[in-house]
Design a binder for these strands. Structure first.
Lengths: 152, 152
DNA sequence: CCGTATCCAACTAGATACTG
DNA sequence: CAGTATCTAGTTGGATACGG
C-alpha cells in the first residue's frame, strides 16, 4: 500500500495480547477507518453481512432473517452500498417473477473477520457495559440524561 | 457469560485464517453487537478512543488532536457516552481554572483490540473499496447516485 | 418478487452564546 | 478551561404507494 501516510503503528504490542497503541497519521488528518466505519455505523449493514456469512440469500430471505424488521427501502439502500463497496455480489435472474440473489464477495468474506472479532468482544463485555451504564445512570439520575436506553 | 442465548459460532474456522461463519441467536433476535456498534457508529468516538491509546489527554488536547475539528458540544457528548459505557475514565481536578483528564479504562484498552483489527483491515483494503466504488459509479453514472463520494 | 419514489418523523451535528 | 443551553441544518430511517 502506497497511498498517503496512513499508518497504524503498534508500540507496546508484546505477545499479541498487550494493548495496542493505535497511531493514525495522514496529511489532512482523516484516519483511514472512516470509510469502513460508515458502513458499520448504519443500522443494517452488519446484520446483512452476518446473515450472508451463512450462505447465499434472496431479498425476501434477508428481510425476514434480519432482526428488528428492516423496511424494503432500507434493505435496498443497504445492499446497494455493500455492493458498491465490493463486499456483496448481486445476481439478477431475469425470470418472472424476478429473482435476485446476494452473496459475499471474497472481500466481503475477509471483512467478516474484523466483524467477528467485534462481535466476540461485544458479547464478552456486554455485561460490563450494562453494569457501567447502570452505575452511571444511578449517579446521574438527578440532573440530565445523555442517551436513555430508549430503543429507536 | 451466561446471559440469554447470545452466541457466536464459528464452523468453518480452520487455522485462524478461514472465513468465519457468524451465527447470532437471541430470543427476540437482536444480536449483541448493536450496543457496541452504536458507539462505533457515531462520528467521533473512534477518534477519541484512538487518541487515548497514546495516553492521558485533557479536553482541549483531545479537541485539537481530533482530525476534522470536533465542536465542544460533540466532544462533550462523545466522552460522556464513552464514560457511561465504562470505556473512558474522567478525572476532574477542582483547580482554577478547572482541569479534566481523560484516559482509557481497562475495558477501554481491551476494546482497542477490535478497533485495531478494524483499522488494519480498513487500511489494507482501502484501495479495493475505492476501486470497487469507482467501477460501480462508472456503471451507474446515468440514472441515480446512492451516496456520492462527497467528502464531509 | 424486487425494487423505486415520495413524504414525513427522528436523530445527529454544527454554530454560537453564556456559566462556574 | 471545561463545560451547558439553545437554535438550526442536514442526514437517516420508516410508511406507504406505485412500477417492471
Amino acid at each position: 500500500m502506497s497511498v498517503g501516510h496512513t499508518e497504524v503503528t503498534e508500540v507496546t504490542e508484546v505477545a499479541g495480547a498487550a494493548d495496542p497503541v493505535i497511531h493514525c497519521e495522514t496529511p489532512q488528518g482523516e484516519c483511514g477507518v472512516r470509510d469502513v466505519l460508515d458502513r458499520l455505523g448504519d443500522k443494517w449493514s452488519v446484520y446483512v453481512l452476518v446473515e450472508l456469512t451463512t450462505g447465499v440469500r434472496r431479498f425476501k430471505e434477508l428481510q425476514r432473517a434480519i432482526p428488528g424488521g428492516v423496511s424494503q427501502r432500507m434493505l435496498t439502500l443497504t445492499v446497494r452500498r455493500l455492493e458498491r463497496d465490493g463486499l456483496v455480489k448481486r445476481t439478477v435472474y431475469p425470470t418472472v417473477p424476478p429473482q435476485v440473489e446476494y452473496e459475499l464477495t471474497p472481500l466481503g468474506r475477509s471483512f467478516s473477520h474484523p466483524v467477528k472479532v467485534l462481535a466476540d468482544w461485544s458479547i464478552a463485555h456486554r455485561p460490563d457495559i450494562a453494569a457501567s451504564r447502570a452505575a452511571y445512570d444511578a449517579d446521574h439520575a438527578d440532573h440530565a440524561d445523555h442517551s436513555e436506553s430508549t430503543p429507536r
